[in-house]
Amino acid sequence: MNKLISTVSPHFSTKRDTTHIMLDVILALCPAAIASVLLFGWRALLVIAVCVGTCVLSEFLFEKLCKRENTISDLSAVVTGMLLAFNLPVTIPVWQAVIGSVVAIIVVKQLFGGIGQNFANPAITARIIMLVAFSGEMTRWVNPVGGFFDEVSAVTGATPLVAMSKGLPLPSYLDLLLGKHGGSLGETCALALILGGLYLLIRRVITWHIPVAFIGTVALMSLVCGQDVLGQLLSGGLMLGAFFMATDYATTPNTKWGKIIFGVGCGLITVLIRFWGNYPEGVSYSILLMNILTPYISRLTRSKPLIGGAKS
């Protein structure tokens, strides 16, 4: 008789491994990806493909070079690529998208030890670095008129947040919801992002704490500051940030209260930048700043073991 396998319990485990979870995130990002093509035309798909391809390739090559175990099959690099693309204007030159992707995977993720070890969200950090390095290209917003809704005509347009801060008229709420306004290619269609976010919640990839705390804080502060609440919620990168980037596992707290503090913090910093800062948009910065605070928040909100009372 052959030898029996002898391992420590449990002898049973969930089928939901890292790859499954990442696949769910990719699925959840699909509505927004489709919306980006409908709104901005095929070039949106090109940017997404370039970012995803570069991210996966950089991860593969870097791990090969460092003789680390290969992790591209966990699909996390695909997620990073999609998220980074979503944060770029559709007009971004391909070479800049490539550099951004390399930075995201190698500098922000792999140099800190790879999946689960990085302290800052790779897509967001890369975007911010690109914003500094390629500030012209990164803020050249086109109105979504190159897409399937209208005739092709590259009109440079202001994002709704810029419009609001300058007191210009906003697109209608419906257009905001559908994404027919200027912005990064994956952030404009709030409807698609909300659908994706709900999917993540239903599949329990994320919990409600961060998105609700984040969006709720922005709503509340907008109300208090006499701003257009719905306009604030539906513009900029809020939905993308709150559902997909502020919920990244490695760079955000894991406990309930930690998540709530994180979300509220993101919301506060976002409105601070939006209402009083020099930049029209603050979602990325808020998430990066809160990423940096995450170790402290985690320490403060550590899970308390149930040790019970004294033995009597």
Binding site: T71, S76, G116, Y249, A250, N254, L306
Partner: peptide, 16 residues
């Protein structure tokens, strides 16, 4: 595979 810091282990431990 490598830990992805998802916190699921913490959030499912009956004894926290």
């Amino acid at each position: 595979t490598p830990c992805i810091s998802c916190g699921m282990c913490v959030n499912h431990c009956p004894l926290r």
